[in-house]
């Protein structure tokens, strides 16, 4: 378990968190390389199916990150995401996934440091949770 390196998928919104990740890069900030970003226009367009699919494929953690409440480029897409993530967190444990593996955060476009910090914290947390059971048990 010592050398367990989790795989993380992050659905990030084009206007805030994707820009923050960009800023983290241009600011030469370092953060764990375990995360893969999938850019969407808004967290409101993240279909719960994407998250479930990721977990079923053996991803150890999923991050959905958008604009701060009130800052959404599309008025209220982040609130829609918040509702969907809340429901997802309800059903994930029934499939054997700890709800901590799914995380929703708000990271503004200028928060490069916070982006790096969030990834670091999430990777550390997933490391303590261990690998996703799907990877070990499920046959796909």
């Amino acid at each position: 378990m010592e050398d367990f390196e989790p795989t993380l998928i992050a659905f990030v919104c084009n206007w805030c968190t994707y820009t923050a990740a960009d800023l983290a890069g241009t600011s030469r900030l370092t953060y764990p390389q375990n995360v893969r970003l999938i850019r969407v226009m808004c967290t409101g367009m993240v279909d719960p199916q994407y998250v479930i699919k990721a977990f079923l494929e053996g991803v150890d953690g999923v991050l959905v990150s958008g604009c701060h409440p009130g800052d959404c480029h599309y008025i209220n897409g982040n609130f829609k995401a918040r509702r969907r993530i809340k429901l997802l967190k309800e059903i994930l444990p029934r499939f054997g996934f700890q709800e901590e593996r799914l995380r929703l955060t708000w990271i503004g476009a200028s928060d490069g440091i916070q982006f790096a910090e969030t990834i670091r914290a999430m990777v550390a947390q997933i490391k303590t949770l261990g690998p996703s059971q799907a990877r070990l048990k499920m046959v796909i």
């Binding site: 969407v40 226009m41 367009m45 279909d47």
Partner: peptide, 23 residues
Amino acid sequence: CGSCAGFCPSGAAQVRHFQKKQI
């Protein structure tokens, strides 16, 4: 913004360039 695409139960609503297939 894809608010419709994120919810559409039948998957009929899709944002061009961010279709479910593409994601």
